[in-house]
Design a protein around this nucleic acid. Sequence first.
DNA 1: TCCGCGGCATGACACCTGTCATGGCCGAGT
DNA 2: ACTCGGCCATGACAGGTGTCATGCCGCGGA
Lengths: 201, 201
Amino acid sequence: MIRVLLADDQALVRGALAAMLGLEPDIEVVAQVSSGEEVLPAAQRTSPDVALLDVQMPGKDGLAAAAELHRALPACRVVVCTTFGRPGYLARAMAAGAVGFVVKDAPPEQLVDAVRRVHAGLRVVDPALAAESLATGASPLTDRERDVLWAAHDGGTVADIARALNLSEGTVRNHLSSAIGKTGARTRAEAVRLAEDRGWL
Amino acid sequence: MIRVLLADDQALVRGALAAMLGLEPDIEVVAQVSSGEEVLPAAQRTSPDVALLDVQMPGKDGLAAAAELHRALPACRVVVCTTFGRPGYLARAMAAGAVGFVVKDAPPEQLVDAVRRVHAGLRVVDPALAAESLATGASPLTDRERDVLWAAHDGGTVADIARALNLSEGTVRNHLSSAIGKTGARTRAEAVRLAEDRGWL
DNA sequence: TCCGCGGCATGACACCTGTCATGGCCGAGT
DNA sequence: ACTCGGCCATGACAGGTGTCATGCCGCGGA
């Protein structure tokens, strides 16, 4: 029996995934949580063999939860599952100690397959995504540029961003300008979009 | 037996939902498709009692598919299912002839419940969302304002938008200004975000 | 018929943005 | 000690942006 922990904020898909995994004779879902914060306590309580974590979750996201879980319970194999096949996510998931990475576009068998494979000690990564991840490369943005770009995410003015980060407006403009240059965008909005697509935020 | 058609572009969640619904003794998933275009042909082939359509799909989205399906096969009850509980989606789904609206945050039982209820001729709508929908109201944007705002979606300049819509730059600025005023935003980026959240695009 | 509203356009103006030059500060690697 | 890169800041400038006044056209309702 492979003991599985399931983390996804959308109750409907979490329940559906549990039902699907439950159909497999050698898989048992021993815990379900809906946020990153609940992952570690639930894992310590139920000691699962495999943890299936969604990236998009309120509060602590799946990547942060994966890192935390990997440090505290190295025996628990982590599979990261996400809606968006963004190259940056893959790289960050691997850096966080995940051994599997599954996209929600993939056929259902691939998930149960991934659970079995990581339980057997193998790594599971989509080859196409791995190639794209290497091609896109790591984020060229500095920490501060990322902060500023993230603060520009919801469309505030330079003054708003400067206030939020305790910076001068000129500095914010510089960071934005630099980020725009590095992403190849022509406006800050485009830069935010591109950086987000590449997982640089 | 309630015959169900399932439409969701994410193969994993589609399969998981099918597995979950398949566990119910009185429900049978007779068709699964991954895009809005496939909905009508599949429905005509399998004549389901209930169609469960995701809003976010490539090409023709769930709302367009719902309208098409409702016109062609009025006997088939449509339930719209979405990740985002945006008020505008609810209104547009109802206008498209849907009789059910389920958010993916909802508990799993609520989905099977919704399927049974709509099959019994009832409407299924989240009360909180319905209230918010009424409060937000219909879009105050004119058609052109919506077009311009949508064209501004990916962060191009005014000149880009003007080219894309064959308008003068001044006109684009006017429409944007008007849209910014109506949404209560202060920049075009914020206006795009707000309008999107409210389902005005 | 006239009026009002929406789409389209022009021009002007204040303000915001993106870019650049310049300089100071600090920590890391040579 | 020195250099280099990242961070922060200031100031200046061209060009983009948001707003307003004004006008024309076409359409549907009073």
